[in-house]
């Protein structure tokens, strides 16, 4: 089903792009045709075309889903499927909304030092996955985006107002893995990548490892790199050793 949604989203993106170009071309061609033919109806026809294209553009933009689905979630599921036994279950909770929608706003303030800069912050947990891997380890993966938008308004010498937007996106990757004690032993090393972001809780049946990693970007269109999550998961497996079992 997610494949279908992803295909629809891809078609929607293409439609939006086409509609955007149609608006631009209709206005330009309409203006040229109107001026050269001295015909108002011809000009009106192109204006009507531009209006239809604009409506399609806004409709597609309103219904657009986050590109996280196509660029991160589906590739990630494809990889996770390899580590889950046939017939295993992957419980997913996704939020494909615009992370900068009003309901995800967590704060807004005018910066003290720069009076013409307004800062707005947003937070959205867009993926929660839970499964049991083929090696019987339990895995919980949560991804949250924290976005900081800084909007600076300046008036130049000619009185023209210019707005500059700057973003900082923090992708919080939270991983919780429960390794069976009879399959994996904790390695006695506190070094390695992300070792400082890792906490270990020893249990009777499982050792639970929690890791939080933060990946940053300065663009809201950048999706979380798959490698960032794979490295986080790998670092958990780097913290354990296989235990030799009877019969092996």
């Amino acid at each position: 089903m997610l494949d279908t949604v992803a295909n629809l989203d891809r078609s929607g993106d293409q439609l939006r792009k086409m509609a955007g170009w149609s608006v631009f071309l209709s206005v330009v061609i309409g203006f040229i045709a109107g001026v050269t033919s001295h015909s108002f109806p011809v000009f009106l026809l192109f204006v009507a075309l531009a209006a239809v294209a604009l409506a399609i553009y806004f409709f597609a933009r309103h219904n657009d889903l986050s590109n996280n689905l196509r660029k991160f979630i589906l590739p990630m599921i494809t990889l996770m499927r390899e580590d889950i036994d046939r017939g295993g279950t992957l419980t997913l909770r996704l939020n494909l909304s615009d992370p900068m929608a009003k309901e995800y706003q967590t704060g807004s303030e005018t910066l003290r030092k720069r009076m013409n800069t307004e800062q707005t912050t947003y937070q959205l947990t867009w993926m929660e996955a839970r499964t049991v891997l083929a090696d019987d380890s339990t895995l919980e993966l949560t991804i949250t985006d924290q976005i900081r938008q800084r909007k600076t308004t300046r008036r130049n010498a000619r009185g023209k107002v210019k707005v500059k937007l700057k973003y900082r996106v923090r992708h919080l990757i939270d991983v919780r893995i429960g390794f069976r004690r009879d399959s994996y032993a904790l390695a006695h090393q506190e070094s390695g990548p992300y070792a400082s972001d890792m906490s270990v809780k020893e249990g009777e049946k499982r050792n639970m490892l929690r890791i939080r990693r933060v990946a940053q970007s300065s663009s809201i269109t950048d999706t979380l790199p798959l490698n960032a999550v794979m490295e986080t998961l790998s670092s958990a497996y780097g913290r354990v050793n296989l235990v030799k079992q009877e019969g092996n």
Binding site: L79, E82, D83, L133, A134, D135, M230, L233, S234, Y237
Partner: peptide
């Protein structure tokens, strides 16, 4: 072999 985090 199947798997990425562990091979089987």
């Amino acid at each position: 072999k199947r798997g990425i985090l562990t091979l089987r």
